[in-house]
Nucleic acid binder design. Structure first.
Length: 875
RNA sequence: GGUCCCAUAGCUCAGUGGGAGAGUGCUUGCUUGACAUGCAAGAGGUCGGUGGUUCGAAACCACCUGGGACCACCA
């Protein structure tokens, strides 16, 4: 045995991960006949280092897979990373800019070369973090969303969907980020409440008079092509079919009617700008209006903006407002809070923009995904409520813009004929390639992430991995990416493989700081998981993250709690030290023999161990790790350490050889099961202790504990409960009368039941051990003339003669209070039992429990009452 | 506007139909031979409010109050 008195995470963690990898414990064997269990890691972006959210996510995956590995499954925990198109491109561009290089001065190839370098750099940071976290990943199967196999899958799916008519190209209003100059999907746009203005502009009518139109984006009026009112609106009915004049520009705008207009809102008159607003775009389509796009891709005004050409959109707004005011066209400006879309990545204000893009037709895919939830193939969401989040989103989903005007990503497998303009879409380039030009755009990152559970296993090829490890078993991720990722994996997998991508989805929340703010780079409030590991060790961090909240709830990061986990691990460490010291060097797992005569402590702890194994297994299967962790914590600290080990010290100090052997067996047996149950939560320290016991053998590939009913004895629990009650009673009194354990006192225990009396006598050495009596008398009837403290317990009465230490009157008062309490309990219990509705409707077990309580309280009441009477007679 | 989550001890949070719990903090005592990062004893809660369902509600339902998240095209 070589263990310091203090748990040192750095020493413990040193070198373990490398040894696990060398031994190949995490390598999944496709030819194994064991049942497979598969988890794919949610691929982190290669944009930066891993944060606490990753640590949490990965810990849960690792706990699940380590547990399954111990339970005899062929486990595949597959690692990989995401190229993260926009985010990575932006980071690389930023770094280049710092080096004085502008992205537009590079060719596509040159830029990609730089980006691959970046990717390699960050990939190694990420792998270092995974190692620190202790993740049991099969690196032989590591994937990257841009690698060859995955690109093949992406192309195949693009072509398939195109051929099925589920991917199309067209000119529509999309969300445009003028900063990164790319299209964005709806969910990449973050809406924020912004203090803006409502500009009320006067549009003169051709025939005289005017209408008042309110807008929040006056610069878009440069692209107005109509005025619209509600056909039912009496105020404006007459105007329909006439013309208004666009201020400044002077264009004639037809006044049209459409029920879309809300008569109650604003002035009830709306300008229509089909090229710069999604609703106006739809109006433009139904009414066949011209689309005038007045902006360049960088958000500045183009030549169609006349005198404003070249101005940035917000500069143009200012200038236009000035000009409208000068021309007497500005009626009023009201301040107005409204929600404005911002780019998730660049935070630039998103411009609704007319643009030619590629889209996925969502309705048929969404329908399939929703229908699947009504079959026996339904995906189980944990917690359940997120299935609602998923289906609500799927139900009114819009088509998905998948093209991005970037370089870093999967270039769209579409080619345009240089002369005819004909489109070719295929997995391989057209044969006469010199006549064709490939689409410059790449696909949305999430298009490839959506294929992750099967593209990583070799799909579309009919690989052995696909056959063995797909569908995967559980996907663990944050609820914040249900739309981005989970939903898209589900419809993609159902469409492409005909199977669900995973059986279960376990959703966790977000990591927040101590002020309950989301941890983010911009706030600078992020906590680096590697710093936490440096201070407390990976095992403490993992246990904290796994048990710090329930599924779907956010976690408020607390250093204090991680520290208290460190204390717990230190406790485990020292309990193991005790065990190892006491079993000695020559006793091993093979020497465990539980067939001989066991002490009460042995029987009790083995019974409780069985119950703990059962509970931890059950709770973990339901992903209730905080409960499983609590059960383990209580068993280990409160029962194994505080009671069993203390009791085991007796035979170890003064028992016979046989008794010592049994104690060694039970100690080691229990410790072994404890370590195995803890291992998924804290892999490093459990491995260290396991190897202290077993030498080279690794706990990683050991076996999950099983309940052994032959070791359970329910009666031991009851006997133990009585002993604990007696011991606690004495301790309590010792505290009250300020008599430390070092000072022996006389203890009398009155037991009316003969068989209970003999059982307590047989175990009196435990009472002696914990209470340090001068004399211990266990008898049927105690009669003492001196002053006593009397504690009436469930089955026995503890009487301590404490002449001079306790006050007669106080003792009487205490007993009276006790009598009153028992009286209250009795009234409550009798109230229930006398209620016919209770006895007839409540389950028999519950009624029986109440009856037993009544009997116990009655006996206690009588006992206390007798004592009290005696005591009073002496006053 | 719609949907969802949260409200339990000073603090952080478990507990989802039959005895109000843990960690931490606080009080008191203890150099007990694994651990003072520990041991023992203790104080501290009308489980946000109101009403309902039930023999029985912290838990289930409705409404209300307060906090938070997400979704949504209101010019």
């Amino acid at each position: 045995m070589d263990m310091s008195t203090k748990y040192n995470p750095k020493e413990v963690e040193q070198g373990k991960y490398e040894r696990w990898l060398e031994a190949g414990y995490f390598k999944a064997d496709v030819s194994s006949d064991k049942e497979p269990f598969t988890v794919v890691i949610p691929p982190p972006n290669v944009t930066g280092k891993l944060h606490l959210g990753h640590a949490w996510d990965n810990t849960l995956q690792d706990i699940i897979t380590r547990m399954k590995r111990l339970q005899g499954y062929e486990v595949l925990f597959l690692p990989g990373m995401d190229h993260a198109g926009i985010a990575t491109q932006a980071k690389v561009a930023e770094r280049l800019r710092k080096e004085g290089i502008e992205i537009k001065d590079l060719t596509r190839e040159e830029f990609l070369e730089q980006t691959w370098k970046w990717k390699e750099e960050y990939a190694s940071f990420i792998r270092e973090s995974w190692a620190k976290f202790g993740l049991g990943l099969d690196y032989s199967r590591e994937r990257f969303t841009l690698d060859e196999g995955l690109s093949k899958a992406v192309n195949k799916i693009f072509v398939d969907l195109y051929n099925k008519g589920l991917i199309y190209r067209g000119e529509y209003i999309i969300n445009w980020d003028p900063s990164t100059q790319t299209a964005l999907s709806d969910i990449e746009v973050i809406h924020k409440e912004v203090e803006g203005n409502f500009y009320h502009v006067k549009y003169e009518l051709e025939d005289g008079g005017h209408v008042e139109i309110a807008t929040t984006r006056p610069e878009t009026m440069l692209g107005d092509t109509a005025i619209v009112v509600n056909p039912e609106d009496d105020r404006y009915k007459d105007l329909i079919g006439k013309y208004a004049i666009l201020p400044i520009v002077g264009r004639k705008l037809p006044i049209i009617a459409d029920r879309y207009v809300d008569m109650e809102f604003g002035t009830g008159v709306m300008k229509v700008t089909p090229a710069h607003d999604p609703n106006d775009f739809v109006l433009g389509e139904t009414h066949n209006l011209e689309r005038i796009n007045v902006m360049h891709e960088d958000g500045s005004i183009n030549e169609l903006g006349g005198q404003y050409e070249g101005l940035d959109r917000f500069e143009c707004r200012k200038q236009l407002v000035k000009d409208l005011e000068a021309a007497g066209h500005m009626i009023k400006i009201e301040s107005h809070v409204h929600s404005v879309g911002h780019s998730e990545r660049s935070n630039a204000i998103v411009e609704p923009y007319l643009s030619t893009q590629w889209f996925v037709r969502m309705d048929p895919l969404a329908e399939k995904a929703l229908e699947n939830q009504d079959t026996d193939q339904a995906i189980k969401f944990v917690p359940e409520r997120f299935e609602g989040t998923f289906s609500r989103w799927m139900k009114d989903i819009k088509d998905w813009v998948i093209s991005r005007q970037l370089w870093w990503g999967h270039q769209i497998p579409a080619w345009y004929h240089n002369e005819t303009g004909e489109i070719y879409v295929g997995e391989t380039p057209p044969e006469d390639l010199e006549n064709w030009t490939q689409d410059e755009d790449v696909l949305d990152t999430w298009f490839s992430s959506a294929l992750w559970p099967f593209s990583t296993l070799g799909w579309p090829d009919d690989t052995e991995d696909m056959k063995k490890f797909f569908p995967t078993n559980v996907l663990v991720t944050g609820y914040d990416i249900i739309f981005f990722w989970v939903a898209r994996m589900i419809f993609s997998s159902l469409e492409q493989t005909g199977q669900k991508p995973f059986d279960d989805v376990l959703l966790h929340g977000l990591v927040r700081d101590d002020q309950n703010r989301k941890m983010s780079k911009s706030l600078g409030n992020g906590v680096d998981p590697l710093d936490v590991i440096e201070d407390y060790g990976a095992d403490a961090l993992r246990y904290y993250l796994a048990t710090g909240s329930t599924p779907g709830q956010d976690i408020k990061f607390s250093n204090e709690r991680v520290e208290s986990v460190w204390n717990f691990i230190n406790k485990i460490w020292n309990a193991s030290r005790f065990s190892l010291i006491n079993i000695g060097d020559n006793f091993t797992m093979d020497d465990i023999d539980l067939s001989g005569e066991k002490s009460l402590a042995d029987k009790w702890i083995l019974t409780r161990l069985n119950e703990t194994i059962d509970a931890v297994t059950r709770l973990s299967d339901k992903y209730e790790f905080s409960e499983a962790g609590r059960v383990l914590y209580n068993f280990i600290w409160d029962e194994f350490c505080d009671w069993y080990i203390e009791m085991a010290k007796i035979p170890m100090a003064q028992g016979t050889g046989q008794e010592q052997q049994m104690t060694r067996s039970v100690l080691l047996y229990t410790l072994d099961k404890i370590l195995k149950m803890l291992h998924p939560f804290m892999p490093f320290v459990t491995e260290e202790i396991y190897q202290q016991i077993n030498g080279e053998a690794s706990i990683v590939v050991s076996e999950w504990p099983k309940v052994d009913e032959s070791l359970s004895e329910q009666s031991a629990k009851k006997e133990m409960a009585t002993l604990v009650e007696i011991i606690k009673s004495v301790r309590q009194t010792r505290n009250e009368v300020n008599t430390p354990l070092s000072k022996p006192i006389d203890i009398h225990i009155e037991v009316k039941d003969e068989s209970l009396k003999s059982r307590i006598e047989a175990n009196s050495h435990y009472i002696t051990r914990f209470t340090n009596p001068e004399s211990l008398v266990i008898t049927e009837k105690v009669t003492l003339e001196e002053e006593t403290k009397t504690d009436v317990l469930s089955d026995v009465t503890v009487i301590l003669p404490l002449a001079g230490l306790i006050n007669f009157e106080e003792e009487v008062a205490r007993l009276e209070k006790e009598l009153k309490r028992l009286d209250g309990e009795l009234k409550r219990v009798n109230g229930k039992l006398n209620n016919e509705k209770f006895t007839s409707k409540a389950p028999e077990a519950v009624v029986e429990e109440e009856r037993q309580k009544r009997d116990r309280y009655t006996a206690q009441y009588e006992e206390v009452n007798t004592r009290l009477t005696t005591l009073k007679s002496r006053l």
